[in-house]
């Protein structure tokens, strides 16, 4: 180029896209100073964004102010993305008031077989974990869920837990026919609580389910690597034996009418 009067146009843009060394060198210098002609080209350009400058600019411009928490937008998005598989209910539903049933306590197993696994938590005391649930039925009533309970696919299962200590946990829905569904990661508090996320009750929709299902709450006592162990399990879509687990077997039958 070596011509200071040259500006961006369709031809020079193509040369830049083709990485013409001379054009690249000259325009890197030319564009380092304000140029109304080139900026006008960039403003109206319908050329392909071969350099990704559109997104580079938008990302930087959008990061100039501090983002505010957008609870409303997130709630809307969450409903779109996870309904009907998962459902969240506003805190008005009193799960605790229902006669929930403790289901399982499975402290972590410290077997030598697993000692070499990198994500195993060493030296942690066994924790106790219990899972109980009520189902919100289509007519709005709450039904205490017992082991091997029959539930309609329209039901939403609300989870309650009792943990002996603060822990990082995940909720999983297992099916004999396919891979387990990772329903999300949570932080459990010590004591008996409803499973919540962002202040709302976490519920599991059974829409689209049919046949035997197992709801699994797996937890790692809070420690330096507990969250990492939980996240690895979510990524690998596995429920490791080393995690404390509480399980609840269900059966989903279409057309079932609760007594």
């Amino acid at each position: 180029m070596s011509d200071a009067s040259r500006h961006l146009d369709a031809r020079s843009w193509k040369a830049l896209r083709d990485k013409s060394p001379e054009e690249v060198a000259d325009f890197s210098t030319h564009l380092s100073q304000p140029c109304e002609v080139c900026e006008a080209f960039l403003e109206r350009s319908d050329e392909d964004d071969a350099f990704g400058v559109e997104s580079l600019a938008d990302e930087a411009l959008g990061s100039m102010s501090t983002p505010r928490e957008d609870a409303v937008g997130w709630a809307r998005l969450r409903r779109r993305l996870w309904t009907p598989r998962r459902a969240w209910l506003a805190g008005a539903v009193a799960v605790a008031a229902a006669a929930v049933v403790a289901i399982a306590v499975l402290p972590p197993v410290a077997s030598k077989e697993h000692e070499d696994r990198s994500w195993r938590l060493k030296g942690v005391a066994p924790m106790s974990l219990e899972l109980s649930a009520v189902a919100r039925l289509p007519d709005g009533t709450l039904h205490a869920v017992t082991e091997d309970d029959l539930l309609p696919p329209e039901a939403v299962v609300l989870v309650r837990y009792r943990a002996s200590e603060v822990s990082d946990a995940m909720l999983v829905l297992e099916s004999p026919e396919g891979p387990a569904q990772m329903l999300g990661g949570y932080t459990l508090e010590a004591g008996t609580h409803d499973l919540k996320e962002a202040g709302e009750l976490a519920g599991v929709s059974l829409a689209g389910e049919h046949g035997p299902r197992v709801l699994v709450l797996a937890a790692w006592p809070r420690g330096p690597r507990s969250a990492a162990a939980r996240d690895a399990a979510l990524t690998q879509r596995l429920v490791p034996e080393e995690a404390a687990q509480a399980r609840l077997r269900l059966r989903v039958e279409p057309g079932y009418v609760a007594p």
Binding site: F27, S28, L31, S32, C38, L42, V53, A57
Partner: peptide, 14 residues
């Protein structure tokens, strides 16, 4: 925004 793109493109090319 075009000014930002011009500046970023210059740095990319450089």
């Amino acid at each position: 925004r075009a000014r930002v793109k011009r500046e970023l493109l210059a740095r990319l090319l450089a």
